[in-house]
């Protein structure tokens, strides 16, 4: 009852304010959604780069992360037992498309990976079933990489997220997370052959992410919407600032960038590659957490409403 009362009091306080913070998708069980979106992006990115770098272990890790993404989403839902209904509205709903993508990814990934890990499996790695799994998982991977940004960008209640750059930024984050996950996997497996390429890729994608982020902040600050401006202030100097500066900037960019510089200019140790991947991935989580947490609802009562009087 105490918790319920506190939540009620919080809601009433929020409703009294002009700019109401978004809490449903980041507090309480909402953290599972943030984690699910984060880990889903990493899973899809890791699958892509594991295919490109031909890493069986990376594919296995990507599949496991995909499953974790599904479990995390189920933990967030109010009525998880009805999850199957989410396939119904794929024509209009990005969440529905994401559900379809995750289902394809997990189903296809299972068909593709089983014969690669279990030689005695009922179907062979070069069979039509495995090939079908490859195609399904690839389609699911593409949906997983793309859909999350659109879920946020089409949320009309939160102007901070209504940016055409948001989907592009989420795509870039999925790629960055995938590179980091593959770096960790390869380093833990003792493989160093591809790490130089991955470090260069990480640098390029991080640069793209940084440019997208800066553009989005600029657009939110200059776009004229008070809710979007408040969100930027929350991110840079408000209730999300610690997560942003500590998690996103320091852990997610500065520390891994130092490891990249050290790795490209000197000997690459496995421990350093693992540390790079881990800090980059943690930074990605905090980036998503910060962006979601900084969301502020579009104010119902606007200056225009008053001016009509």
């Amino acid at each position: 009852m105490q918790q319920t009362r506190a939540k009620y009091e919080q809601l009433i306080r929020d409703l009294r304010g002009d700019l109401r913070p978004q809490r449903e998708w980041c507090e309480g069980r909402g953290l599972f959604l943030v984690f699910g979106h984060f880990v889903g992006g990493v899973a899809a990115g890791a699958w892509l780069f594991s295919l490109l770098f031909d890493s069986r272990a990376g594919l296995g890790v990507a599949f496991a992360l995909g499953a974790l993404c599904g479990i995390s989403h189920l933990a967030f839902l109010g009525r998880p037992q009805r999850f199957w209904r989410m396939a119904a509205q794929w024509r209009t709903s990005w969440i529905s498309r994401g559900f379809a993508g995750l289902s394809l990814f997990l189903g296809g990934g299972f068909l593709y990976l089983v014969p690669r890990y279990l030689p005695q499996a009922p179907w062979a790695a070069d069979s039509a079933i495995a090939d079908a799994g490859y195609v399904l998982a690839l389609a699911g991977m593409l949906v997983l990489i793309v859909y999350k940004g659109f879920v946020y960008a089409t949320s009309k209640a939160i102007p901070f997220w209504n940016s055409p750059l948001h989907p592009a930024m989420y795509i870039a984050f999925a790629l960055r997370g995938g590179i980091a996950a593959l770096l960790i996997t390869l380093a833990l497996g003792g493989e160093t052959a591809a790490t130089r390429d991955l470090l260069l890729l990480w640098t390029a994608v991080t640069a793209v992410v940084t440019v997208f982020f800066a553009l989005e902040m600029h657009a939110a600050l200059t776009g004229g919407n008070p809710a979007a401006r408040r969100s930027v202030h929350e991110l840079l100097s408000g209730r999300v600032a610690i997560a942003f500066y500590g998690g996103t900037l320091t852990l997610g960019v500065i520390v891994p960038a130092w490891f990249v510089w050290a790795g490209l200019s000197g000997p690459r140790t496995l421990a350093a590659m693992v540390a790079l991947g881990v800090t980059s991935v943690i930074g990605d989580f905090f980036m998503k957490y910060s962006m979601i947490r900084a969301g502020v609802h579009l104010p119902v009562w606007t200056r225009q409403t008053l001016q009509r009087g």
């Binding site: 109401r20 009309k156 209640a157």
Partner: peptide, 15 residues
Amino acid sequence: KCVGCRSCMMACPYS
């Protein structure tokens, strides 16, 4: 039919 994903709450510009 509601699964409690709250996407509608994020979509409603009127909260």
